[in-house]
Simulated scan of single mutants.
Amino acid sequence: MGARPAPGSADGPPPRPLLSRLAGARDALVTVALSAAAAVAIGIVRAPAAALEKRVAETSDVYVLPPPDEVVTLSLGYRSALADLLWSHVLVSQGLHTMERRRFENLTLLLDAINALDPTFRDPYLFADALITFQTSTTPHDEVVKAREIMERGVQNRPLDGEIWLALGQFVAFIAPASYLTDPAEKAQWRLDGARMLARAAELGGNDANISWQALGGAGILGRAGEREAQIRFLQRTLAVTDDEGLKQQIRAQLDKLLGEQAAEAYRRRIDGFSEIWRRDLPFVSKTAILVLGPPRDPAYCAGGAHADEPRCATTWSAWAERVAGER
Rank of each mutant, 00 (worst) to 15 (best):
P7I: 10
S9R: 15
G12K: 14
P14S: 14
L18P: 05
R21S: 00
A25Q: 15
A28D: 01
T31R: 12
T31Q: 14
A38F: 15
A41V: 14
A41M: 09
A41S: 07
G43P: 03
P48T: 12
A49R: 09
A51V: 04
L52F: 10
L65V: 06
E70Q: 15
T73Q: 14
S80I: 07
A81T: 14
A81C: 08
A83Q: 12
L86H: 00
V90Y: 05
E105V: 05
N106W: 00
T108F: 05
L110W: 00
I114T: 08
N115S: 10
T120C: 06
F127R: 15
A130Q: 04
L131M: 04
I132H: 07
I132Q: 06
Q135E: 13
T139F: 06
A147G: 03
I150P: 08
E152F: 06
G154L: 04
V155K: 07
G169C: 06
L181G: 01
P184I: 08
A195D: 00
M197Y: 13
M197A: 12
R200F: 01
A202Y: 00
D208A: 02
A209G: 06
I221F: 05
G223S: 14
Q231W: 05
L239W: 05
R252L: 09
R252Y: 05
K257V: 15
G260P: 09
Y267N: 12
D272K: 12
I290G: 09
A300P: 02
A303L: 12
A308H: 01
A314N: 05
T315P: 01
G326H: 08
